[in-house]
Amino acid sequence: MRITLTHKELHELQKLCLENDNHELFNKLSHEEHKSIKSRTVKKTKATQKATKVRQDTARKKIESTVNMMRLFNQKITVYSVAKEAQVSYNTANKYKEYIQRNAH
């Protein structure tokens, strides 16, 4: 059976356990609370890392294909022009500045 408690309810229950010298139940409640918080944090962290990687990969692919197209059409290649053409922010394109400059010729 599973029950959901607010933080306030959990702390009141823990307080009652201590008042009634039920340290075993108090420890069990504390352990479960810690596991729950830890598991949500780990899941969120992994999901955030995965989403960030997907965004970075998408931006990199856009920038690489834009640079290739601009070279094909003999257009001037700068960080600004690549950002504008690839429809990414200047700051994002600037992270790939070395790649852009290396492939500008």
Results as ranks from 00 to 15, higher is better:
58 T>V: 10
7 H>D: 13
52 T>L: 15
41 T>D: 08
22 N>R: 01
104 A>L: 06
104 A>I: 01
90 Y>A: 04
63 I>Y: 04
84 K>H: 12
55 R>T: 08
47 A>M: 14
62 K>T: 02
57 D>C: 05
22 N>V: 03
88 V>D: 01
65 S>Q: 13
53 K>T: 07
47 A>K: 15
90 Y>N: 05
32 E>N: 10
63 I>W: 02
95 K>N: 13
94 N>C: 02
88 V>L: 05
58 T>L: 13
48 T>D: 15
45 T>W: 10
91 N>E: 13
42 V>H: 00
53 K>A: 11
105 H>R: 09
42 V>P: 05
47 A>C: 02
34 H>D: 10
49 Q>W: 09
55 R>D: 09
10 L>P: 00
72 L>D: 14
36 S>Q: 12
6 T>W: 05
50 K>N: 11
75 Q>S: 09
54 V>H: 07
90 Y>T: 01
63 I>R: 02
10 L>A: 03
58 T>C: 07
12 E>C: 01
99 Y>L: 06
8 K>S: 12
59 A>N: 12
77 I>K: 03
16 L>V: 05
18 L>K: 15
7 H>G: 14
29 L>S: 06
89 S>M: 01
59 A>R: 00
56 Q>V: 05
25 L>M: 08
39 S>M: 11
38 K>R: 11
80 Y>M: 07
50 K>Q: 13
7 H>A: 11
13 L>G: 01
16 L>C: 02
58 T>F: 12
68 N>L: 13
76 K>H: 11
47 A>W: 01
54 V>E: 10
18 L>Q: 10
34 H>I: 00
91 N>G: 08
25 L>H: 01
4 T>H: 08
79 V>T: 11
79 V>Y: 00
59 A>T: 06
89 S>K: 08
68 N>C: 06
70 M>R: 02
81 S>E: 06
55 R>H: 06
63 I>M: 00
59 A>G: 01
54 V>G: 02
47 A>H: 10
40 R>E: 14
13 L>D: 00
96 Y>H: 05
87 Q>F: 09
78 T>P: 04
21 D>L: 08
24 E>N: 12
42 V>I: 15
3 I>N: 09
26 F>P: 01
47 A>G: 08
52 T>M: 15
68 N>H: 09
90 Y>Q: 04
15 K>H: 13
43 K>W: 08
49 Q>R: 14
62 K>M: 10
2 R>N: 12
12 E>N: 11
93 A>V: 04
49 Q>H: 12
1 M>I: 03
1 M>C: 06
77 I>T: 06
52 T>A: 13
36 S>F: 15
